[in-house]
């Protein structure tokens, strides 16, 4: 990739970051609260995309990873009174172990079957948190009244945004290296990657580890923002649906796509609230995604990119004149 393009993208990232830092100055508290959820959804969608969008191993069990992180830190802080700077790193570590559980089946199966195993992981976790040791996990009610990192809408906004931005930026730097192209090659043709003398084992392990770590960071911070955790809110097809839809609608296989999707959907839902309450909102949510997915599987990101490619020359001419 030419250096000038690198600089241009870098500039885009910086501009995006700077703009988002200014948002609380002019936005209402309501919008800031909405953006916090968008930031978390963006983290989850990026985490999903590292495995599924890049390597083609579709995970239907991402709530499982997020849930491990959430439950670990919730249980540690609640029952052992652990401070957050201990419980959150431990939660991320636990998620890495969970990611390894995902990784084992991925050594043998891929594609549709892999998605099924991960889905089964999530459903199993849903049942087990309720059945096994409900005194510790809080059973169906879950745990609530958890410690918060900071209070208030604006501080939480900055926290969630900086974490999201840092993750996005790191991922962007990673995928620009040869590792990024190798991961994409796994999606296309895993045998060819092996034939080139690269270890798909190591590459996949890297992708799964990164994805789990991101899910762990997001999940642990998320429960301490929300203040509660419950199996029905986490290990649920609707939660999986939200993550999937954010990544796919925005554009999987990119970094900006999942962020775009997460922001778009969160805003769509919140702005529809006064007009449509109830199930209609999810209906619209899903229907839009299906349409975009069938017409342009690479999502809004690709649509915008093409629109930009069409407009840019005209703009350049305009400026030249």
């Amino acid at each position: 990739m030419p250096k000038s393009q690198f600089h241009r993208y870098l500039l885009c990232w910086l501009a995006f970051g700077a703009f988002m830092c200014l948002v609380p100055l002019f936005a209402s508290t309501g919008m800031v609260r909405v953006l916090i959820f968008a930031n978390f959804l963006a983290i989850f969608a990026m985490s999903w995309d590292i495995i599924s969008g890049r390597t083609g191993y579709i995970s239907f069990g991402h709530p499982f990873l997020i849930g491990i992180a959430g439950y670990t830190t919730a249980i540690l802080t609640r029952h052992l009174d652990a401070p957050l700077y201990v419980s959150i790193p431990l939660a991320i570590l636990a998620t890495l172990v969970g990611g390894a559980l995902f990784f084992v089946p991925a050594l043998r199966i891929r594609g549709t079957y892999f998605a099924l195993v991960t889905l089964a992981f999530m459903e199993l976790m849903y049942q087990l948190t309720q059945v096994i040791a409900p005194k510790i996990t809080g059973g169906t009610r879950g745990l609530s009244g958890l410690k918060t990192i900071i209070l208030g809408a604006v501080p939480n906004y900055y926290l969630s945004f900086f974490v999201m931005f840092a993750i996005a930026f790191c991922l962007w730097l990673i995928v620009r290296t040869r590792i990024g192209s190798a991961l994409a090659a796994i999606r296309m043709d895993e045998e060819a990657v092996t034939a080139l003398g690269l270890s798909t084992f190591k590459l996949k392990l890297f992708a799964f580890g990164t994805s789990a770590a991101v899910a762990g960071i997001g999940g642990a911070l998320y429960v301490h923002y929300i203040g509660s955790i419950a199996p029905r809110a986490l290990f649920d097809i609707n939660f999986l649906f939200t993550i999937l839809v954010a990544a796919l609608l925005g554009g999987s296989g990119t970094i900006a796509g999942p962020i775009l999707g997460a922001y778009f959907l969160t805003f769509l839902l919140e702005y529809l609230r006064p007009f449509l309450s109830g199930a209609e909102r999810y209906l619209i949510y899903g229907a839009i995604t299906l349409i975009v997915y069938v017409l342009e599987p690479r999502g809004l990101h690709s649509i915008l990119e093409r629109a930009y490619a069409r407009i840019a020359p005209a703009l350049a001419r305009g400026f030249a004149r």
Binding site: I58, G111, L244, V245, A279, L283, T289, L290, Y293
Partner: peptide, 22 residues
């Protein structure tokens, strides 16, 4: 693309669920 079908039908199922609720 079986993977795309798997994803799309899962989304469709949630959409239909919302429709039934409606």
């Amino acid at each position: 693309n079986p993977v795309a079908v798997e994803i799309a039908t899962l989304i469709l199922a949630v959409v239909m669920q919302s429709l039934i609720i409606l």
